[in-house]
Design a protein around this nucleic acid. Structure first.
Length: 814
RNA sequence: GCAGGUGUGGCGGAAUCGGCAGACGCACAGGACUUAAAAUCCUGGGUCUGAAUAAGGCGUGUGGGUUCAAGUCCCACCACCUGCACCA
């Protein structure tokens, strides 16, 4: 039958019945773990982005299979999370019901894609069998001291009366109602990812990841080398430390600034200044995200009335508070050097604080204040004349002797806030007991089940808090009445370990078997969107390292090699969105053309990592190409009945060249996820076959058929159903995916005669044919004797002749 | 503001280490087949000057540079995109 969705269904059924793609653990030595970022079942359907990600990853994996690898390619669902809950608030449909319904639809669509997914290994993060182990991981981290609780400001929407996740804050406003988001202090759970900051940075080097992504992580971790320097408070037994990268400017300090939230503030504020300080703290707290993000905003602050003692000069410097100092970075205190820092300069100018130059530029350099470059120290006593680079070390060394300072590395990375005051997530498995404090739920009592009958309309409190049956429990330690933790885990926790569960998803005893997982992991190829560069990919790396240190696995990095697919835009060149009405939905196209045509278009129409605008004409072109392949297969079947030769003549050699050129290029390009050029090379091979059919009177039909068979082997990963169908039509045995990937013959790629361009003074003026065996001298001779070339060089002096074998001849004349 | 990326025909996009720019395809034009159309098959093509299958000029965001040779390397700039954003 001609290619259609019927063909798709026929082969999907057969593949499933014969369990063709089932991973065989016996072949563990050839295992290849190919993983795509699993999908979030919020929309009811699979969208184009899923197809682009999964379809072409499957193409890559299929080639690898044919090259002899044992492929493990699982699929699952990242099923907890806010969209399902928001949908529930809007429509009243329970998140669990809508989620499982969406999963069902998406599973069906994923099957229709015809990928090799191991459905036996599916994981769904909202199922108790899965989140039991998410909770277990939380407890493992708690045991290792990597999970802790502290009060922290969280995003708060005053209109919805609820806490928002960072992703829900769009440009400082609530994603749902547009109200400006403020901060609210709540006691929250954190994972101590900062403890791994250095390793997360160091190990990036050895990963086969896009450089861009590594750069994003490097910036996100934000390592900064500097020093901590201690200042004492005048007349009090109190001190604080500042973090600075410019210890060389220490002698230029004219005041110091604490973050308004710093706990020292209350202790040092004088009575005269207390009112102003309290007011300012209140003002700082009310700052909305929008205000804070505004870069044009003027700096504000107030004097506390207290003075600090300069650690070197012993001078008094005023202590201010200002919200340009962040409580969460460094020590939450800074030394202000207005002469050499733009922010301090602006602040000092506004509040009439002294400005003292301590660095001057090199001779002749413009060094107007604020001068933030390195230079030579002045006004710095014993350090005068020293370079900034030397001074920033020497000054700290001097302080070190008096234990008033030390060199220090700081990171921009913050600990990961994992608790959410939301319903649709994994409950945090701890119990709060009046007598024993925080008590982890014993492993045997896991999972802490998420109850179904919960009122989840938002009113600022965790929905679980209102569920008495859930909240009330007994303390596992002392047996007294106790309460459960009402918060749920950030969904990024669920997705930070799913790749560990896939290979051992049925394990009831453990999250995974250590020995087995050490064989199956790390993931050999991970494919997904670049939007996860900082969050998911960093969290997953952290969880892997934490579990390694807890003794549960023995590898350092979860994803050896990473590829990001690009984004497919609407036909108008804009990002697809409902409001723009430019959404392309895969289903209609698949119904019309079949899933292979759809996949093949995705492969051919875009540079994989770039993406680009969708085009209906493009998919039609692929439909035509598929027709051409089908017709040439039918043609050769017909030719079997006609007379044939066994000779390998010039035409056969030419056709063979096209074959091996295609094999080589498709192998190399597909390996690199360059699907578009791979398809181009197959088109060229098809064109060559048509030419042979058209122009060669008496054909070597056997030879032609052999080349068509190779074409189908190359095409199989790109158009699995079609290729399987045509393979069968040719009478070959099931399945084409048990065939091995064709190898190319270097000898077939060597032509007897090659054409080379001849340049005169860098411009192409002619072409010559030279035997491929000719050496440079001979090539030069042939070129110089060429009639056309002679005309150009006639009467001119030949200065130089450059011959690049197989490429070009350049004759320089005067 | 800082960091990174991109810029190539009417369009999607190719071009390994600096070596014939525009592979492959779309759209377009011409031809074959057909009563006709569609489909199919073949041919053409960066652009400008030329009747031209003659010859030549100009061409990879802009301006310089290195080189026998630059889309590719170096310097400066422009536009768009992404990430971070008072990080001391």
């Amino acid at each position: 039958m001609p290619y259609s969705t019927e063909v798709d269904r026929k082969w999907q059924k057969k593949w499933e019945e014969t369990k063709l793609y089932k991973f065989n653990p016996q072949n563990i030595d050839k295992k290849l773990y190919c993983l795509e970022m699993f999908s979030y079942p919020s929309g009811a359907k699979l969208h184009l982005g899923h197809w682009y990600n999964y379809g072409l990853s499957d193409t890559w994996a299929r080639m690898k299979r044919m090259q002899g690898f044992e492929i493990f390619q699982p699929m699952g669902f990242d099923a907890f999370g806010l969209p399902a809950e928001n949908y529930a608030i809007k429509t009243g449909v329970h998140p669990q019901d809508s989620t499982y319904q969406n999963i069902e639809t998406m599973e069906r669509q994923l099957r229709e894609m015809g990928a090799m997914f191991e459905w036996d290994h599916e994981v769904i993060t909202c199922s108790p069998e899965y989140y039991k182990w998410t909770q277990w991981i939380f407890l493992e981290l708690y045991k290792s001291g990597l999970a802790y609780r502290k009060e922290a400001p969280v995003n708060w929407c005053p209109s919805c009366q609820t806490v928002l996740a960072n992703e829900q804050v769009v440009d400082g406003a609530c994603e749902r109602c547009g109200t400006e988001v403020t901060k609210k202090n709540l006691t929250q759970w954190f994972f101590k990812i900062t403890e791994y900051a250095q390793e997360l940075l160091d190990k990036l080097e050895e990963l086969d990841w896009p450089e861009k992504t590594k750069k994003i992580q490097t910036n996100w971790i934000g390592r900064s080398e500097g020093a901590e320097i201690e200042f004492k408070i005048e007349n009090k037994d109190l001190s604080f430390r500042v973090f600075t990268t410019r210890a060389d400017t220490l002698l230029g300090v004219t005041y110091v600034v604490l973050a308004p939230e710093n706990e020292l503030v209350d202790k040092i504020t004088t009575d005269e200044n207390r009112k102003a300080v309290e007011e300012y703290k209140e003002f700082a707290k009310k700052q909305t995200e929008i205000d804070r993000l505004s870069t044009t905003r003027e700096k504000t602050g107030v004097f506390t009335g207290a003075y600090a003692i300069h650690p070197i000069t012993g001078e008094k410097v005023p202590v201010w508070i200002a919200d340009y100092v962040l409580a969460t970075y460094g020590t939450g205190c800074v030394m202000a050097v207005p002469a050499h820092d733009e922010r301090d300069f602006e602040f000092a100018t506004k509040y009439n604080l002294p400005i003292k130059r301590v660095i001057k530029g090199e001779e002749g350099q413009v060094d107007e204040l604020p001068y933030t470059e390195y230079g030579i120290l002045v006004n710095s006593g014993e350090f005068d004349g020293m370079s900034s680079a030397d001074a920033r070390v020497n000054i700290v060394k001097k302080l070190e002797g008096e234990s008033k300072g030390e060199l220090k590395v700081n990171y921009r990375l913050r600990d990961w806030l994992v608790s959410r005051q939301r319903y649709w997530g994994a409950p945090i498995p701890v119990i709060h007991c009046e007598h024993c404090g925080i008590v982890p739920v014993p492993e045997k009592d896991l999972p802490v089940l998420l109850p179904y009958d919960v009122e989840f309309s938002p009113d600022g409190e965790s929905p679980l808090k209102k569920h008495e049956g859930f909240m009330n429990t007994t303390c596992p330690k002392c047996g007294a009445k106790a309460l459960r933790d009402p918060d749920t885990l950030d969904t990024f926790v669920c997705s930070s370990w799913y790749y560990l569960r896939y290979p051992d998803n049925k394990n009831n005893e453990k999250a995974f078997d250590t020995e087995w997982i050490n064989k199956m992991l790390p993931v050999d190829k991970y494919i997904g969107g670049p939007e996860h560069a900082a969050m998911h990919l960093l969290y997953a790396r952290f969880i892997t390292k934490a579990l390694r240190d807890a003794g549960h696995l023995s590898f350092d990095e979860p994803f050896k090699s990473l590829v990001h697919q690009g984004i497919i835009l609407g036909p108008d060149g804009n990002r697809m969105s409902k409001s723009k009405g430019n959404i392309v939905s895969p289903d209609e196209y698949i119904a019309e053309y079949g899933s292979d045509v759809f996949r093949l278009y995705l492969a051919f129409g875009f540079a994989y990592t770039e993406g680009g605008p969708w085009s209906d004409d493009g998919i039609k072109a692929i439909d035509r190409f598929v027709g051409r392949v089908e017709r040439i297969v039918d043609r050769v079947i017909e030719l079997r009945k006609e007379s044939s030769t066994d000779e390998i003549r010039k035409d056969e050699k030419e056709l063979n060249y096209a074959r091996h050129y295609a094999i080589k290029a498709v192998s190399e390009d597909t390996e690199k996820f360059q699907f578009n050029t791979s398809v181009s090379r197959m088109m060229e091979l098809v064109n060559a076959l048509y030419k042979y059919d058209q122009e060669t009177e008496l054909k070597n039909v056997k030879y032609m058929e052999g080349i068509i068979a190779d074409l189908l082997r190359l095409l199989a990963p790109f158009a699995p159903h079609l290729s399987e169908e045509l393979w069968e039509r040719l009478g070959y045995s099931y399945s084409i995916f048990n065939e091995s990937w064709p190898a190319f013959d270097e000898a077939a790629l060597v032509k007897d005669i090659v054409e080379m361009a001849v340049q005169i003074n860098g411009k192409v003026r002619g072409k010559v044919e030279v035997p491929s065996t000719a050496d440079e001298k001979e090539i030069e001779k042939i070129a110089l004797e060429d009639k056309k070339v002679k005309e150009y060089i006639n009467g001119k002096e030949i200065k130089k002749v450059i011959v690049i074998k197989g490429r070009i001849i350049n004759i320089v004349v005067k």
